Computed example of a mutant assay.
Amino acid sequence: MPKLLFSKIRFNEIKDLIQNVKRPRRIDIVLNGRRQKKDIQPRTVENINDETYPSKVSWQTDDKLHPTMETLLHDKKYLAAFRSFLQSEFSEENIDFWLACEDFRWTTSQEDLRWKAEGLYQEFIQPSACREINVDHHIRERIKKSLEKPSHSCFDEAQKHVYLLMERDSCPRFLQSDAYLSLKHKSKSLWYI
């Protein structure tokens, strides 16, 4: 026999409370809804520009500001800490691929472009590569076709995919890691030097 959640006395008390509640009639709901819609005025660009808002930085404290993925990749101390964090997670091939693609873009000679592209493909893209990155089959095939006549943009799609993977997955974990927190603490404590 199932257990009763409420005793009969408790049920009667609740039933009495429900009967005493004034319920709005359907017509009242409709009329109030129409009245409220008339009172709402759309905000225009002029209205928004007239108001003064605090700047983003003024209301955020230093503790809430975290570096973006761009900052991690372009600041040497953050990059070193992020790379060592990725090594600890066995996914440093992502940052190495991204940095290799950045180096590849600055290649000027067509001969250098060809052998660098082949080296990037063999090291990071090719199935069963020693440091294979996580990209889908379609990206692999497009890169393989582009190796016949390599250009500066043949790895762009894969680089963007790896960047987004690091930004969405690795970067948030890094910002919560001990490596980042100690780096942040160290930079705060050395302000007087």
Results as ranks from 00 to 15, higher is better:
Met1Pro: 07
Leu5Ser: 13
Ser7Tyr: 07
Phe11Cys: 08
Phe11Arg: 13
Phe11Leu: 15
Phe11His: 07
Glu13Ile: 09
Gln19Trp: 06
Lys22Leu: 12
Arg23Glu: 12
Arg23Thr: 13
Arg23Gln: 11
Arg25Asn: 13
Asp28Asn: 09
Ile29His: 02
Lys37Asn: 14
Ile40Asn: 09
Ile40Ala: 08
Ile40Thr: 08
Val45Trp: 02
Glu46Ser: 14
Asn47Asp: 15
Asn47Met: 06
Asp50Phe: 04
Asp50Thr: 03
Glu51Met: 02
Thr52Trp: 06
Tyr53Met: 02
Pro54His: 00
Trp59Val: 12
Thr61Ile: 10
Lys64His: 05
Leu65His: 07
Glu70Ser: 06
His74Ser: 13
Lys76Asp: 12
Lys76Gly: 00
Ala80Lys: 14
Ala80Gly: 00
Phe82Lys: 03
Ser84Asn: 11
Glu89Lys: 12
Asn94Cys: 07
Asp96Val: 10
Leu99Glu: 11
Ala100His: 05
Cys101Met: 03
Phe104Gln: 01
Trp106Asn: 15
Thr107Phe: 01
Ser109Leu: 03
Gln110Ser: 15
Asp112Phe: 05
Gln122Ser: 03
Gln122Cys: 05
Pro127Tyr: 12
Ala129Glu: 05
Asp136Gln: 06
His137Glu: 09
Arg140Glu: 11
Arg140Asp: 00
Ile143Asp: 07
Lys144His: 14
Ser146Ala: 15
Glu148Pro: 00
Phe155Val: 00
His161Arg: 15
His161Asn: 15
Tyr163Gln: 10
Tyr163Trp: 15
Met166Asp: 08
Arg168Ala: 11
Leu175Gln: 06
Gln176Phe: 01
Ala179Pro: 00
Lys184Ala: 08
Ser187Asp: 07
Ser189Pro: 02
